[in-house]
Amino acid sequence: MEARWEAVDAYIGEHLLADDPGLTAVLANNGVHRLPPIDVSPAQGKLLYLLAQMAGARRILEVGTLGGYSTIWLARALPEDGRLITLEVDRRHAEVARENLDVAGVGDKVEILVGPAHDSLATMADDTGFDFIFIDADKQGNPHYMREAMRLGRSGATIIVDNVVRAGGLIEPDSDDPRILATRALFEQLKEEARIDATAVQTVGAKGWDGFLIARLR
């Protein structure tokens, strides 16, 4: 079954995603530097690009940069005067991302803040009004990152949280996996949060069985 998931992703790519040597080079460079291969898939990257465009995003916040693959998709969705801030805990990852962003031609739109996301977000007291926020960092931090997204986003902002299904682990109340516990806490948090309209979508594909949460800040 998983082979068919990957085959469907390949079919989608062949028909709906243009050949993109730049992004292929980014993934190759990530491999050279031995970054973990946990980037979003090409189809998911295109989805982020389209969602950011449909939201009319001019200011984007990303929590979790890795090698900048999703960052590039999001930066491409910005207008000429758009701006993206991305947070990365690992300095080496950030250096690879900067190289990739510059090669992709979007480096002038992107600022990388290096350090724990909790700390970087705390420094952004006055940097509010983001139109689009993508959360894809340490899953244990998701409840906190969502609270910060609500603080930093404008009314009507789109918030995406990746990897929320975790091969079905989301529905395991007795799990001892801190990533699953935090994801369940995120859902409980949003269940009671009047400022958020949200849903989640399961996905299968080259990245396996997972899913993402999509929310609108009132």
Rank of each mutant, 00 (worst) to 15 (best):
E80H: 04
E80W: 00
I85K: 12
I85A: 12
T86E: 10
T86N: 05
E88H: 03
E88Q: 07
V89G: 01
V89M: 10
V89D: 00
V89E: 01
D90H: 14
A94R: 08
A94V: 06
A94C: 07
A94W: 05
V96M: 04
V96H: 03
A97C: 03
R98P: 13
R98D: 11
E99L: 14
V103N: 06
A104T: 05
G105A: 10
V106F: 07
G107Y: 07
K109F: 02
E111W: 03
E111V: 13
I112C: 13
V114P: 10
G115H: 03
H118M: 10
D119N: 04
L121G: 00
A122K: 13
D126L: 11
D126P: 00
D127K: 12
D127S: 11
D127L: 11
T128L: 05
G129I: 03
F132P: 04
F134L: 11
I135L: 15
I135Q: 10
I135W: 01
D136Y: 02
D136T: 03
A137P: 04
K139M: 07
Q140A: 12
N142L: 02
N142E: 06
P143A: 02
H144A: 15
Y145N: 01
Y145L: 10
Y145W: 12
M146G: 08
R147W: 02
E148P: 02
E148L: 02
M150F: 11
R151L: 02
R151F: 03
L152C: 04
L152F: 04
G153D: 07
G153I: 10
G153T: 07
G153Q: 09
S155K: 14
G156H: 05
A157H: 03
A157F: 12
I159E: 13
I159M: 06
D162V: 02
D162N: 12
N163G: 09
N163I: 08
V165F: 13
V165E: 05
R166C: 09
R166F: 12
A167L: 00
